[in-house]
Design a protein around this nucleic acid. Structure first.
Lengths: 345, 345
DNA sequence: CTGAAAGCGCTTACAG
DNA sequence: CTGAAAGCGCTTACAG
């Protein structure tokens, strides 16, 4: 039987394993083993089968494989908030790592709604995913999910409140230290911290607190004062950065500002320039998050701590794929310093 | 046989259709028909089967269903660029529409690499997706994909270069008109356009051109001049907005600025304030894209045209699910005006 | 209205 | 090393 040039099976439909077996003159079982690299197949046979499979452009039906093998090679990628700028880079990192492992990601977005999360979960489980990656929108912990036995789960960015679960998160405290050490290494000695909100239900309050503590700890370690006595906390906006800096300058001498995020840093920088001060000569300013439209593309590119969310996603996906290599509990990943004009001397 | 309280099948594993049939005292075929709402099942039987299924927490194995039915209820969501801020809202819209139709989205990110796109495509087809949604990163058209018969494709944001394909895109020209009409309706008569790049390989050049033409057409329709003689084109950054405005003010009288995006608008506004002009009293400024961190959260909230990318994704997904309702070719969706302080009088 | 049987396209013990 | 057979969990003509 001649091989169809179009790479199709006999009837014009896509070639199946049975077509391959027939064309290669072997049984279904042998064809399957040969193609899956099983050891117990003759060298010549294997060659013939792979050749025929290639000729027929054979693409195995993964549904059928999954059904008989019991593994689907797919995982659910379930997020709280696809819009937020934190969940997304995590998803991207996860998708990349999954893709490398030939694992398919089933995307689901619960938009913060419990009922939707439950519905999506049902659908995903019906699809027999091998595991679940939960990507949260903020650093606050979330309720763990109850899953059928055999379905592994990893929590990314927002950790599970159950310490027995595996969570991969950002090290906000370490990043606060990093940012502050950077200003200190530049010779700054009058450093203040303009942080985000601490209110009970404010999104990101844990990050605001941990980053501020990082600053305090770093200053203390160097025997330096916290200018203004303690970190100042407002909200995550430019406006707060502008106002806080304006007030700060009226009462304190400052040569370095650690701002809770890039927005606050932007507001601070605008105010400093507005008051005729030079950045970074008079006051060096650093933020957090490496927000694309904010920190690098503005008129005065801003130094920042990149929280490496991509890496959080990547790492979480790897942990999901190889749970044996990972201990339970929270794994906090460090960010890295990005130096731009607002601190470059 | 008593129903297990835990909602599990006999051996503790998840219940299968066979378990349900056995417990309900009917055949597999009947159980299947009852659960799938087929008409040819007795009322009493259907009730009994659904009851038993609920008791056993029966969740059908979708893999098996797909294998026998030939439809998987899944589509590929293949993007160029998950990081870009344009592709993402489209994906979100698509995911929402797919979720509503109980269709699962298989996420794949080719990061602009042809080889990756091909690999992902192979994997998706191996998974027997029912259709494919291609989400591009910019308004420029892309090469169409060759897909096996029976797999529908819809192109979102970036249209296919083949007019026989179905594409859902943004109406950049109409948005340019919209922005300009808004300034005109505010009584502005000296309007200039500070647009994005037109260079051959600049991302977004088609949007830059179409938006500028929209401004020109709107001004012409009202018998108003294009201040500076024609739209000015630079790049998509704040810096360009700042510089262009600075130069413009030296030679022209201006009371309205249509800026190609929100970044440019931000630069323009900063320059205007820097030179002691009032926004919007002296010069009203509007941008495009409704970029989250830029237009609404800055110190001076900016008016903008929201391109409704979410709707582009939603619409594209709907078209994929119901191809019969849609004609081939490009469908351009309008944006909508968002009025904020930079034009609010 | 109900059920026995074949089939979807694979994989995997088990025999030979 | 190779193959016949059973099985994964469903759906769908077809008979009754």
């Amino acid at each position: 039987m001649p091989v169809t040039a179009s790479g199709k099976g006999p009837a014009g439909r896509a070639a199946t394993l049975a077509d391959v077996a027939r064309a290669a003159g072997v049984s279904l079982a042998t064809a399957s083993k040969a193609l899956n690299g099983r050891p117990d197949v003759g060298q010549a046979t294997r060659l013939r089968v792979t050749q025929v499979a290639a000729d027929l452009a054979f693409a195995p039906n993964e549904l059928a494989r999954s059904l008989s093998s019991g593994r689907t090679g797919s995982v659910g990628l379930l997020t709280d908030d696809l819009e937020g700028r934190f969940a997304l880079p995590v998803m991207i990192g996860a998708e990349d790592a999954l893709g490398e492992a030939e694992t398919v990601a089933l995307l689901a977005n619960s938009r913060g709604r419990q009922d939707l999360e439950q519905r999506h979960l049902t659908v995903l489980l019906g699809r027999r995913i091998d595991g679940l990656l939960l990507v949260g929108k903020g650093p606050e912990q979330r309720e763990p999910l109850t899953l059928p036995a055999g379905i592994a789960a990893v929590y990314a960015y927002a950790p599970s409140s159950d310490p027995g679960d595996l969570s991969v998160v950002c090290d906000h405290h370490g990043s606060g230290v990093l940012a502050t050490e950077h200003l200190i290494s530049l010779g700054r000695r009058r450093i203040a911290h303009l942080g985000g909100p601490l209110e009970d239900h404010a999104i990101g309050r844990l990050a605001a607190r941990a980053r501020a503590r990082g600053t305090v700890d770093a200053l203390q370690a160097h025997g330096l004062p916290v200018v203004a006595g303690a970190p100042l906390h407002g909200d995550w906006l430019e406006q707060w950065g502008w106002e806080a800096t304006d007030r700060l300058l009226d009462s304190e001498e400052v040569d370095g500002l650690v701002c809770g995020n890039d927005q606050i840093a932007r507001g601070a920088i605008d105010l400093l320039l507005h008051r005729g001060l030079r950045v970074p000569e008079d006051v060096a300013v650093i933020g957090f998050d490496n927000a694309p439209q904010m920190s690098s593309l503005g008129r005065l590119p801003q130094s920042t701590i990149d929280m490496d969310l991509y890496n959080v996603g990547r790492t979480a996906a790897r942990a999901l794929l190889n749970p044996a290599d990972w201990t339970r509990g929270r794994h906090a990943l460090p960010g890295h310093l990005v130096v731009r004009a607002s601190t470059a001397s």
